[in-house]
Amino acid sequence: MNKNDLARFSRQLLMQDIGYEGMEKLMNSKVAIVGCGALGSTQAEILARAGIKKIKVIDRDYVDLSNLHRTHMITEKDAIDTLPKAIACKKWIKEIDSSIEVESVIDDFDSTNAEKFLNNVDLIIDGTDNLESRFLINDFSVKYNIPWIYAGVSSWYGNVMFIKPNQGACLRCLIPETNNQNESCDIIPSIGTMTTLVSSISSNLAIRYLAGNEVPYGVLFVIDGRDISLEKIKITKNEKCPTCGLHQYEFLEKKISRNVVRICGTHAIEIRPEKFLNIDFIKKINKIKEKFNVISINKYSIRVQRDTIQIVLMNNGLGIVEGINDVNIAKKLYDELFNIII
């Protein structure tokens, strides 16, 4: 630990259960945060300020004006520029501490890449908004014995649980059915205070664990933001749990084909290229303007419009066509833009 670190973390070094030894452990830890929206961005900010020196953020989405009321480390300009969330998180983490190694991944998180993205980390933190991704993290956690923290928000309520694989209850012990009736394509109501509360509790567990302290595992923290109350519920490990009891990893082994998919809860369609590229939008800007109205452009993404339909194309080739439900029309517009650029 150098002189700058001693000054930066001087108050934290005085903390019981952290001190110099715990601080060294924090600085040598690597964390993966799946999702860099309201929860993930707040968790990333807290952990960056706490001294975690290696952070990986995974998110396929881009910053939108509707994110600003609850998402940390993003600005109105990021939304106007259609900046990918993973890039925005990386940018602002580096503003907090330029020595942090930040790996930003702009991609969907699914069974085709989970093992690659989550490999070689000390802890996984849930910044997602759907059960499918959480069950996938849970499969990986149990299979490879890497702990993770489940975190979720809906309206004024939130849940957090530290999952220590093969010792305490896993997520499937808590939610055994995959076809949960609460999962839908409705947009989940949320407020910034709740995402911050849930992120603070989940990040607090992360900091204590990474600093070498015992943390309660298999305990569900239930946060009520209306009454400002916190309840702790012990979740019993289920010996017949399909994941941690029977070691069946159905989400890791799930076969998927997602070249073109409708994005749940939106009038938008995601289109994935055959292979990821590294596109230079600036070189083709004049040709693009001949066919589309360019709304915003940067090294990571371009947003264009034709009539009422907008297309956001990432520099890896991942595209999102907004304002349409017709897959064929969306694919046609994407192909037209993609062929101009490549």
Rank of each mutant, 00 (worst) to 15 (best):
N145S: 07
G212H: 11
I187N: 13
M161F: 04
N119W: 09
Y150A: 08
P216C: 05
T193E: 06
E132G: 10
G192R: 12
A211K: 02
N119Q: 13
L174N: 06
N130E: 08
S133G: 15
N130M: 06
K143E: 04
N213G: 04
S155R: 10
A169Y: 00
N130Q: 10
E132I: 13
E177V: 05
Y150Q: 08
N159P: 02
S133H: 10
I125C: 03
S154G: 09
L123R: 08
T128Q: 05
Y209N: 11
N179W: 01
A169N: 00
C170Q: 01
G212R: 11
T195P: 05
G158K: 06
E115T: 14
I146C: 10
A169I: 01
V142L: 10
T193D: 01
D129F: 06
I163S: 02
C170M: 00
S141A: 14
V153S: 10
D139W: 07
L131K: 08
N159F: 07
I191M: 15
S200E: 10
S104H: 04
K143H: 06
L171F: 14
K164R: 09
L118P: 02
C173M: 03
S111D: 07
V142Q: 10
E214F: 07
F162C: 11
S141K: 06
Y157D: 15
S154C: 13
T178R: 15
S104A: 14
G152E: 02
Y150F: 15
I191Q: 14
W156N: 13
T193W: 00
E115Y: 02
Q167F: 12
N166Q: 12
V215R: 04
A114L: 12
T195A: 06
C173R: 07
N145V: 01
I187W: 01
W148A: 11
I201T: 11
E177M: 03
F109V: 08
N159A: 08
N166S: 10
S203V: 01
R134G: 08
L197G: 05
